[in-house]
Nucleic acid binder design. Structure first.
Lengths: 224, 224
DNA sequence: CAGTTCGTTCACAAATTTCTCACAAAATTC
DNA sequence: GAATTTTGTGAGAAATTTGTGAACGAACTG
């Protein structure tokens, strides 16, 4: 499981990134200051670092500069909006990408994925449960080799559940991560999509379990 | 032994690059002006060209433009620091990478290596899907040996999709990679080209699949 | 400079998906 | 076991997305 380090002095932002990061399968660590960041890096290797520019004490640029003395670990910088200067300076110092605050956590995750893919640390995975396999890159699902035509939302939903095998995800969490953080619709919409997804999954419909009063969970158990 | 051409009006810089280049096993040639560069290219094929933007007379962009009329040889451009515009323009004209001056020769070598690795494969490759084959070098597409006259954009689009077989590419991604980093047009332009491309592909039109809500994907499946 | 090709935008139709809602069914609570 | 909460389900309206033809200007060609 890849390690993600999030550095920001705002605890809410850290928690937000952690929430989304863990859903994407990252093992997340947090740091509050520049010093803590450098300390953390000395203690364990990270696969990607999300680094806030504006921090009390050692700021993001200094931290990045320090990191780059010894490591080429991918770094995504968080900057204040419209700070074109930050962007340039960040790239110059060796940042791999940057994001303007406030940002959409979903987009941050997408960028993390892009950076990891670019730097070759992300394997293009195929998720498999018995005869069912999911290929995120091509957005295809096959059952015993036969392709399943799945609408976008259902694919995203299945993917999210797959990436969190055996973990219960609440409707709220699913709405937040699959639909987006600013989605206002009815929570029960999730149910409808689950229903349709189950139909599409046919014999594999029991992959998706209802956890009464909580949400849904994907679990694969041996069988034919 | 691969050939490297370094173009810059500063003799010290040329010598520096030559020193490192030869250490990496390149056979190095130098050019001082744009005219000399074009002359050199006419005389022998190069595997990679390092091209300074700022030169007296014909500048780097003009040279690159000229080169791209006839060749897809990898080009790394040297630009003044902070010239974001240069970077964009360079990419737009078909540069494979760029480096801001002053730069670390080691890093330049690393980038040369990266570019060669990246482009090296497709340099001689002919991509084939059944009776359809694509030759990037000559920018030709044939169906059962019969040549297809494809407009440039459509060829680029087909090539990009081919190079990412089975991977869904969003319209945005296609615009960014086929049209250029700073293209501002309508995303639906992609659709129009896809439509026309499909018509041109005739029986192979089903190579290009629509992934609803996401983008397009090229996939070859067995058939007659 | 007329004719052609190419790239782009636009509008409308067609196709597909998403969402909501009401009610039935199931599980839980008391 | 009745009341309450939660989930499953079906249908159709609403919204989104894509296919397509046409029109326009720019670039190219002879």
């Amino acid at each position: 499981m890849p390690n993600l380090l999030i550095t920001d002095d705002d605890i809410h932002l850290r928690k937000l990134v952690r929430t989304y990061g863990e859903l994407e399968g990252f093992c997340c660590e947090e740091a509050e200051t520049g010093e803590q960041t450098l300390e953390a890096i000395r203690n364990m290797p990270f696969d990607i670092i999300v680094l806030d520019v504006m921090m009390p004490g050692t700021d993001g640029f200094q931290v990045l500069e320090e990191i780059r003395r010894t490591s080429q670990v991918p770094v995504i910088m968080l900057t204040a909006r419209d700070e074109e200067y930050d962007k340039l300076k960040g790239f110059e110092l060796g940042a791999d990408d940057y994001m303007a605050k406030p940002f959409s956590p979903k987009e941050l995750m997408a960028r993390i994925g892009a950076v990891l893919r670019r730097t070759g640390k992300k394997q293009t995975d195929v998720i498999t449960f018995g005869g069912l396999s999911i290929t995120p890159d091509s957005r295809t699902v096959t059952i015993h080799g036969e392709r399943l035509g799945l609408p976008p939302k259902e694919f995203d939903l299945l993917l999210k559940l797959s990436q969190n095998e055996r973990v219960v995800l609440s409707r709220e969490k699913l709405l937040q991560t699959v639909w987006g953080y600013n989605y206002y619709g009815d929570v029960r919409t999730v149910d409808t999509h689950i229903k349709s997804l189950r139909e599409h999954l046919g014999p594999y419909r029991k992959l998706i379990q209802t956890v009464w009063g909580v949400g849904y969970r994907l679990e694969y158990t041996e069988e034919t």
